[in-house]
């Protein structure tokens, strides 16, 4: 007899999965928002900072910062995948087994 939803919610492993996933997902969401809106607000309030030259040539500090936002987005997503594959899938499999 499969367990009901309420019974599965009582499983400590389910609680662990939900707690872990919630804290990881929301902290990474907030981190993404900070990085992106930090970039946007920097552009809106202090565009000259991004236009400062880094050396003798034409290269400005805004170029590596823009590139860093793109790379950081990818790294955050990658970090989530590694964590999710390592933790969530194992827990999920156990919960599914125990709920049959």
């Amino acid at each position: 007899m499969p367990l009901t939803a309420q019974q599965i919610e009582q499983n400590p492993k389910f609680m662990e999965l939900v707690a872990k996933r919630r804290s990881l997902n929301w902290s990474l969401t907030v981190l993404t928002l900070i990085i992106y809106f930090g970039f946007i607000l920097l552009i809106a309030f202090d565009p000259k900072f991004l236009g400062e030259k880094m050396g003798e040539g034409v290269m400005t500090i805004g170029m590596p910062i823009g590139l860093a936002v793109i790379v950081a987005t990818f790294l955050i997503v990658g970090f989530y995948v590694v964590r999710a594959n390592a933790t969530f899938d194992v827990l999920t499999k156990q919960i599914v087994e125990e709920s049959k």
């Binding site: 552009i43 565009p47 040539g57 034409v58 400005t60 805004g62």
Partner: peptide, 29 residues
Amino acid sequence: LFASAVEAHPKHQAIMEPGQLVSNPVGAV
């Protein structure tokens, strides 16, 4: 590459920094 673009573009060094596209903070957000 950038030096050559800055030389060719009529806005010159201004193309290396944010311009008028996002100038109003509320609009930007």
